[in-house]
Amino acid sequence: MRVCSGRSLRRSYAFFLVLAAVALGREQCQAITIDDFSVGPVTVSRTGSDPAEALQTGLDEHHVLGGQRGILVGEAGSETQTAVVNSAAGVFEFSTDDSFGYLDLLYGTDEKPLNIDLTADGSTAFVLYETDSDVRSAILNIYVDSSTGRGATRVTATSP
């Protein structure tokens, strides 16, 4: 029977660990920042029967794709729903009260389209990082408007 030395075995483990780190590390490498929530602090609240919305413009495009962020809170559901961009902490928070919550985040407008190649830098997926959640249920979709039409996909928020 062929017997490997401890040194050879250690080399094999090291090679395996390096290979795994390189390959899996690519997944954590963010290619395009659509929003890192580090600019444009705002609170958008629905308190009553009407939805609330905000369109922020002139934001740093290194942090918000296209420099614009639209937030629409409470198209239906609870009369108390709140969305907060806490730029100091670099987080986006949403909460709803005694009924369902509805929220839309919008990037790009008809007047100022993004005109971006999402596949640049080898990107193959959207990612939405979540650090805190007690949401028992929700439907989360991403819609994409391109020059050839509109598409959608379901997304699951993940830990960073």
Partner: peptide, 18 residues
Amino acid sequence: NVQRIEVSYIRVAPYSHF
């Protein structure tokens, strides 16, 4: 050639926070 991106949260359960 993407023009707009929209993230839509629907029927987020009552008393939720994320």
